[in-house]
Structure formats: C-alpha cells, structure tokens
Nucleic acid binder design. Structure first.
Lengths: 132, 132
DNA sequence: GTACGTGCAAAGGTTTTGCATTACA
DNA sequence: TGTAATGCAAAACCTTTGCACGTAC
C-alpha cells in the first residue's frame, strides 16, 4: 500500500484494511459489506469507523459514493469516469467503460456549471435471465 | 381528473389529492413533500397511505421512483423517457429532455437484456452559483 | 359481506452522532 | 501532551409492516 503513503490522513490499521478490501474491488460494496469483510480481520471494527473512513475517502476523491441502489449507498474505488449497468432483478452492478456523447442543450450549459455525468443502464443479467 | 377514471384501482379522496399534487409537478418531490402537501387537505393523512399510493402508482407505471437523492426516494409523475440534471449544492433536480446516443458495447448487449437507461448530469445551478 | 383502503403505532434497515477511550507523534 | 481515530451505544432518518377500523360496491 505504498501508494497511500502520502494520502494525507492517518493510515491506521483499520483504514488500511478498508483500503485493501476496496483495492480493485468491482463489486460496488455497501458499508455493511465492507464492515463484514474487515471485521474478520478486526473484530472490534465499528460502523462508525467504516463510515468515517468512507466519508474521508470520498471527500478526498479516493472513492465514489454510488446512489444506484435505493436501499443503501454503495462505494466504488474506481474513480475513473465510467458508467454502470444494473440488474433490476438481483441488483448486481457491472462497470461500463466507454465514451458516450452527452451534449446537453446549450441553454442548460449556460445556466448550470456542469461538473459531470453518470449513466445507469438497466437490464437483466445473464444469471437472472437463466434462472427464469 | 377524468383521465384516471379507468386507472384500475380505487380513486379515494386521499389518492386523488396525491395524484392532483403530482399532476404536472416537476419538483421531484419526496414522500415527505407529498405527505406535507396533502396533509393540508387531509389532516389525518398518514405516511402509510402516501407510500401505499406511491407504490401502487409506480407498480402500474403512472409515476417513476427516482434514486437520485442518496437521502431519500423522490417521485416523478413524468413518465416520458427523460434524464436529470442535479445541483450538487442544493439537490435541486431539473428535467433534461433530449436524445442521447447510448450504444452499449456489443458484448454487454449479448449478455444482458437491456431495458432502459437514465443519465444523471451533475452541476451547480444558477441560484447556487450566484450565492457564492 | 367482502375486498380494499386508511391510519396509527411499532418495527426495520441504514446512517449519523455523542462521547469516552485509545493510539500516535 | 495534544490531536486525531476508534468503538460502543444511542439516536435519527426514511421506509415498511401489522392490525384494527372504515368505506364502498
């Protein structure tokens, strides 16, 4: 985890465990997923620490908070601009890389300072398709 | 409200009030917004009735449930395919109509049965821009 | 009378907060 | 010693649920 050497906040063992769990993770885990995973290593880990760390990481731009799932927040360590394909049946989320041409009407570009965008594709994943 | 004559479920006064509040509403109100608004008319209105009605309307395709706001669900009576522009400062949501070319990689189109998409544009609205 | 809707309160799930304790420079 | 993080429990918030009561065909 040398890359986090200069991350700008204390790298406690708990935070390292969270970072390590998130590293390269494409499952878009929820706070609870993360809590469960790092609890195996740190039995005293608390939700407060998980949320505190996630908030800090998000505020510093190391992770992205996803509002895709109405039931709970999910977190994505992939901060490169990308989009998501969501299975409406099992809620699985798959990354979508690719360029899309998203030119807003000029009127809106005049009014708003646009900072980004995110596309959600909805569908049914192969696993759920097969199950029916 | 003649248009709801054959809506397929009982049009109680409470439901009519909710429908009437939603009609043409572009504010993307939350359940609480709706509850507050119709409570003025029906002081005994309960959240159970609001959620029950919203669920029914959503299941029958009369409204869309938006997961845009991490804090709460919002509801949109505009069922025509459209997208949204969200002010990251005040959370205001503006409709975006327009066609965007969203062709997924062929690989994903083979695997998934794609059913729809939704674009979120992020930015800062004119009001918030001025306030700073 | 039956089926459905309403309304209240309680419960459920996720996230936040207060505060005492702990760790580290 | 001082600053920041941890961990526990409680609280807050949104949403769902159970159930008794009402209402309408």
């Amino acid at each position: 985890m040398q890359k986090y050497k200069n991350i700008g906040f204390k790298l406690t063992p708990q935070r390292l465990a969270i970072l390590s769990y998130l590293e390269g993770n494409t499952e878009h885990p929820s706070a609870e997923d993360i809590y469960k995973a790092v609890s195996a290593q740190f039995p005293t880990m608390s939700f407060a620490t998980v949320y505190n760390t996630l908030d800090t990481l998000r505020d510093r731009g190391y992770i992205i908070e996803l509002n895709i799932d109405p039931a709970k927040k999910r977190f994505d360590p992939n901060i490169k601009s990308h989009h998501h394909l969501i299975c409406t049946s099992c809620k699985m989320i798959k990354d979508v890389h690719g360029e899309f041409n998203l030119n807003l009407p000029q009127l809106m570009k005049d009014d708003f300072r646009i900072t980004g965008n995110h596309i959600e594709f909805y569908g049914v994943c192969p696993v759920c398709l097969k199950r029916k």
